[in-house]
Design a protein around this nucleic acid. Sequence first.
DNA 1: GTCTATATTCTGATAGAC
DNA 2: GTCTATCAGAATATAGAC
Lengths: 173, 173
Amino acid sequence: MTAERSTRDRLLDSFETLLVSDGSRAATLEAVAAHAGASKGGLLYHFHTKDELIGAMLDRLRDHAAADVERMRVAPEGPAAYYLNTSVDSGSDFDRALIATARIAQENVDAASETLDAVRADWLAVLFEHLNDRPLAQAIQLMGDGLYFNDTTGNQDPQALTSAHEILKRLGL
Amino acid sequence: MTAERSTRDRLLDSFETLLVSDGSRAATLEAVAAHAGASKGGLLYHFHTKDELIGAMLDRLRDHAAADVERMRVAPEGPAAYYLNTSVDSGSDFDRALIATARIAQENVDAASETLDAVRADWLAVLFEHLNDRPLAQAIQLMGDGLYFNDTTGNQDPQALTSAHEILKRLGL
DNA sequence: GTCTATATTCTGATAGAC
DNA sequence: GTCTATCAGAATATAGAC
């Protein structure tokens, strides 16, 4: 009884997947439609313009993010460790949406930059609530950003996450 | 007696500038040529294909990087502080080349990923030589990556660099 | 809701004049 | 070395059939 994923959702999934794997130039309407097993016309029924496609992606990201912030708040390992662990791309829907949005933000699309900024502010707020130490909270977020950045650039160093955790320990966490 | 910047160099500068400010989609041959005050035909005399343009950018980046690694080695404030300080985009030619290359690397262009990877490996080697502490060296590099990533996504938090330095202090640096 | 066909504009690249 | 003119193919978007 698994609910079928709607065409609309599959189109958004495909848009994100192409953005993450091959960047913005590769995420054409035709490529997105083909990846989702649909036609360009079919895509344009759901999203009248490319901007609408981007907007729908940002809406989904905000939903994902709200849920993640809640998980982070109650994570047994603590928000800091939770944050670092989930900063290395696990292939989750949320990671994909986040990296895809970063790609769009880099093209100077204000709505994408603002959404990313809001998500990052929520994370930082939880880190700060928990740690009550602004420099520490920001340093943890920077390391998380670094982990993402590297996953995203085609170079992963599996040791990096381990090192980040080791440094947390040294800082009293 | 300032030497005039050659058309070839101005074209590479413009390519990098457009990549950094508006992303890969905006860095078309026509846009690059116009930004450099030249024509598409003029550009294609110097670089026969777009791949050649990218290759020339990577060559320049490697030259910049070799010089930067030397500066880092002898920096009076030490390699770690030098690295963090130069990880927030100062608008230098080197920063521009580095961020521009990250944009291309995200499009799954192997030559760009490999060049970035080599530059990062050189930095990490200097950090490790100086600190003799792998997790610490990697954590510093992660924070530097995080600073770059944020500069690059349209969101700068001026406090982030200060926090990173504060954490270095706490870690005994 | 989804498809095919088509219009329009953009992009990378060639040819050849100056 | 640099430009203009031009072409083939790709990208976004529209119209209308099913």
